[in-house]
Write a protein that binds this DNA or RNA. Structure first.
Lengths: 339, 339
DNA sequence: CTGAAAGCGCTTACAG
DNA sequence: CTGAAAGCGCTTACAG
């Protein structure tokens, strides 16, 4: 089978102890073995195509140089990009990443945490799902290094990297107000997760600050699951009332994709009939007839920063909890009706 | 720190050997320890919140229950979906997956293979990049269980799961011919990889079988890297000649996205000015004004099958090499000009 | 039925 | 400068 050659084989071949081989092969321990012996060892290692067994090393060292990443779903482009960025940044620092998709389901997230912990990952990066506070508290209690990304729980003190969702929504809606829209709707997810609450709060504050009294029919929430139909119903209702909306802010890209499809089926014209602002860009919108105004999340920074915070936390050099808010950017194009 | 509780701690608490604890806690070894002792052990394990250290177990067992997955790029939706499917299928069988993105670069693929092997993955699923034959031969030589996915090297005997690319392209182009198109172009990648060769062969055979003598200007190849500009130039040339194409077959979804953007900028109308068939569906096309005819790859089956083949190979129950070709499906919509 | 012991492949404190 | 030995946390063949 493979990987049969171990330190012992090299030691035997050269006629030294495994200790000598270990010293000779690890950098920074040069003084421990004479150069001549070291060279013979290195030659033998190369000849036998020696590949160190990281599992054995990990067991001995108590470190695996592995990071665990729990996201909602890799097949969602937003999370796929995060996964990619985290992978690259981790690799750069000599870490491998193991990821898992929680599907926004706390039970699956628990399973993943246990699997990753049993595999002795050195730290975790987590996009927490709803109702997973218990998990986060457990990790804190167990002193597992971790950082939350994209979302966090304000009532739990922990490291995180997130965007300023309040501001993102506030700016988006203010922009629609400035464009002259009076009846601005918002389509969001029905979830207690803080990032979504913040987006809703931003929406509401912006309405207030624009002197537009929010109508309760303008803010609709749908659940994960049967998105397509729920979005249809929600948008239908926003458009049906006497006070039909004249602008719509989508709280995520998935909501925007589904919402726009339905709006198109109604033959409504963006932005004339309905002005639109969405969250995130993406290939999905590349072919939309009207270039969309959207909130650009700094996803690369989000991913990089989460790795950096985690590594700092693991090395103990940061002395505690770091909470990072990154600023999103409102990219203005035609769909909001101002240009 | 975390995970401090080991078999030894439980053994001490209960007053038995670690062996007894190990037996009591592993299923299928019931007879090895009296029920009464076993119960006390289990109670203690629960009380101490014992979590087995998989690293230690792996070292001892010579198996990690981990699969390595090397794809071109997780942030590409096609590969992201494969990653997701592989993850789910592997989990179902008790395996964790570690993935890495090779970026179609053989050096990066080599690095990934070494990292994964050093981490003692039990097997590999690989989307091979160009010029990586050496790597595949190495894996064979080392008797590492692996299966290739999406692509393979016909001159190297190995397990793989791929689609019938020749047929996919042949059917697509025949369909365009049936739609009355006479000058059918194809935009492909410049690569020696077999799947692309097969797609080109399918295109050429279909032209021949339709009595359309292929013009060498109709088949263009671009390199990864500066896709956007190369696609632009290629499409430009296909349209510029006296024999300008009246239909275009895209060999991948990335090529289609870039190609269609350029075609749109030319104000060409699909399918009247130019009929289109693409590879893969995707959100990207959801908003395209003309529903696209495309080759649907059975990506879920592709992923599932690759895991199944790998597990069979690892268990030694399949006695060698399995080569699976899955059939793609041509989904006919408006862009090809027949409906 | 039960447990002491060896060993997976490493690293490093320690004694020579 | 060099190497024997212990030990990371498990599992299991083996002896009692």
């Amino acid at each position: 089978m493979r990987n049969k050659v171990s330190l012992k084989d090299i030691a035997q071949k050269v006629g030294v102890s495994t200790a000598a081989v270990s010293y000779a092969l690890s950098t920074g321990k040069e003084g421990k073995v004479s150069e001549e012996v070291a060279n013979r060892i290195k030659a033998a290692a190369k000849e036998l195509n020696y590949q160190p067994n990281q599992i054995a090393k990990s067991l001995k060292m108590g470190r695996t140089n592995t990071l665990g990443l729990i996201i909602a779903d890799v097949s969602n482009p937003f999370f796929a990009t995060i996964a990619r960025v985290v992978e690259d940044e981790a690799n750069k620092h000599g870490y491998t990443v193991i990821f898992g998709s929680s599907d926004e389901c706390p039970e699956r997230a628990w399973d993943l945490i246990n699997v990753l912990l049993n595999r002795q990952v050195d730290g975790l990066i987590i996009v927490p799902s709803e109702a997973s506070e218990e998990q986060i508290l457990y990790l804190k209690d167990q002193k597992v290094p971790f950082v939350l990304i994209d979302r966090y729980f304000p009532e739990i003190s922990s490291s995180f990297v997130a965007i300023n969702n309040y501001k993102a929504a506030y700016d988006a809606v203010m922009h629609l107000a400035k464009a002259g829209r009076k009846r601005i709707g918002m389509l969001a997810y029905k979830t207690s997760l803080f990032h979504m609450q913040e987006r809703k709060r931003g929406y509401q504050e912006a309405l207030r600050d624009s002197g537009l009294s929010p109508d309760e029919n303008w803010l609709k929430e749908v659940r994960h699951g049967d998105i397509k139909n729920e979005v249809k119903t929600a948008v239908e209702e926003m458009l049906a009332s006497d006070d039909a909306i004249d602008a719509l802010f989508f709280a995520t890209n998935t909501l925007a994709i589904n919402g726009l499809k339905y709006i198109d089926s109604l033959k409504l014209k963006v932005p004339d009939d309905l002005a639109i602002v969405s969250f995130d860009e993406g290939e999905a919108f590349d072919f939309y007839y009207c270039p969309l105004t959207f909130v650009r999340q700094p996803v690369v920074e989000l991913g990089n920063k989460s790795v950096q915070l985690l590594l700092a936390q693991m090395s103990g050099s940061d002395g505690g909890i770091s909470q990072v808010h990154l600023d999103p950017e409102l990219v203005i194009r035609k769909s909001s009706g101002l240009v």
